[in-house]
Computed example of a mutant assay.
Amino acid sequence: MQNTKRFCFSCDLKDDQKLIAEYKHYHSKGVTWPEVTQSLKDAGVVDMEIYLTGNRMFMIMEVDETFDLQKKAEMDANNPKVQDWEKLMWDYQQALPWAKDGEKWISLEKVFHLEEH
C-alpha cells in the first residue's frame, strides 16, 4: 500500500437550490469531465471526496508522494479543459467570506485527530 497524505479544503456554493442541484449533477458519476478527473490523477491525487451541508462544501483529497500543491496549480493553469471546468464551476461557487481575492478552495486547519488521543 502506498503512502498517502490528506488535504482538506472548504468552499461555498451560491445559496440557490437550483444552482446547487446543477453543481451536484456536474459531480455525479459519468458527468464530471474525464479530462478533469484525469488531471487530478496525473497530479498524484489518489482519491477525492466532496461533502455538502447547506451551501458549504468540504473536499478531502488523498494524495501520493508525487503530489505538490504548487505543481498542481501550474498543471491546472496550463490545461485549457481544466480552466474551462474551473470557469464553469465558478458560476456555482462563491468564495468564503475570509478568502483572499481569487481564492476558491480554502485549506482547512486540522484541530483534532482521535489517533493522537
Results as ranks from 00 to 15, higher is better:
residue 23 Y to S: 02
residue 45 V to I: 15
residue 17 Q to G: 00
residue 63 V to G: 10
residue 57 M to E: 10
residue 114 L to Y: 08
residue 111 V to Q: 06
residue 109 E to M: 10
residue 40 L to E: 07
residue 104 K to V: 06
residue 2 Q to G: 09
residue 90 W to Y: 07
residue 52 L to E: 13
residue 13 L to Q: 02
residue 20 I to L: 00
residue 12 D to E: 14
residue 31 V to P: 10
residue 66 T to F: 07
residue 71 K to V: 13
residue 40 L to H: 05
residue 77 A to Q: 07
residue 86 E to D: 12
residue 7 F to C: 00
residue 72 K to P: 00
residue 18 K to S: 08
residue 79 N to V: 00
residue 105 W to G: 04
residue 46 V to T: 11
residue 19 L to G: 03
residue 63 V to A: 13
residue 37 T to Y: 02
residue 28 S to M: 08
residue 104 K to R: 06
residue 47 D to K: 08
residue 86 E to P: 00
residue 94 Q to L: 01
residue 37 T to V: 13
residue 31 V to M: 12
residue 3 N to Q: 11
residue 99 A to C: 08
residue 81 K to C: 02
residue 106 I to S: 15
residue 112 F to A: 08
residue 81 K to W: 01
residue 32 T to K: 12
residue 59 M to W: 09
residue 57 M to D: 02
residue 85 W to Q: 03
residue 63 V to E: 11
residue 82 V to I: 11
residue 25 H to T: 10
residue 8 C to S: 10
residue 13 L to Y: 06
residue 60 I to R: 13
residue 6 R to L: 05
residue 103 E to C: 04
residue 30 G to A: 07
residue 35 E to D: 12
residue 16 D to I: 03
residue 43 A to W: 05
residue 112 F to V: 05
residue 40 L to C: 06
residue 108 L to R: 04
residue 33 W to P: 00
residue 69 L to T: 02
residue 88 L to Q: 08
residue 7 F to W: 12
residue 5 K to H: 09
residue 32 T to Q: 13
residue 19 L to D: 04
residue 77 A to D: 03
residue 12 D to M: 10
residue 3 N to P: 06
residue 101 D to W: 04
residue 114 L to T: 04
residue 31 V to N: 14
residue 102 G to Q: 07
residue 25 H to P: 06
residue 2 Q to V: 01
residue 87 K to A: 11
residue 68 D to W: 12
residue 45 V to T: 11
residue 58 F to Y: 12
residue 70 Q to H: 07
residue 93 Q to T: 07
residue 62 E to I: 00
residue 17 Q to W: 05
residue 78 N to K: 13
residue 20 I to S: 03
residue 98 W to H: 15
residue 94 Q to R: 12
residue 30 G to M: 07
residue 45 V to Y: 07
residue 55 N to M: 00
residue 97 P to G: 04
residue 10 S to H: 08
residue 76 D to C: 10
residue 89 M to L: 14
residue 22 E to H: 04
residue 78 N to Y: 06
residue 27 H to I: 00
residue 9 F to H: 13
residue 105 W to E: 08
residue 29 K to C: 00
residue 7 F to P: 01
residue 107 S to W: 09
residue 54 G to Y: 02
residue 48 M to S: 15
residue 107 S to R: 15
residue 19 L to V: 03
residue 103 E to H: 09
residue 68 D to F: 11
residue 103 E to T: 05
residue 65 E to F: 02
residue 20 I to P: 01
residue 11 C to I: 10
residue 77 A to I: 01
residue 5 K to L: 11
residue 55 N to I: 01
residue 94 Q to H: 05
residue 102 G to F: 05
residue 102 G to T: 03
residue 88 L to G: 01
residue 113 H to G: 14
residue 69 L to K: 04
residue 1 M to Y: 03
residue 4 T to C: 04
residue 62 E to M: 09
residue 68 D to R: 14
residue 73 A to K: 11
residue 22 E to N: 03
residue 87 K to I: 03
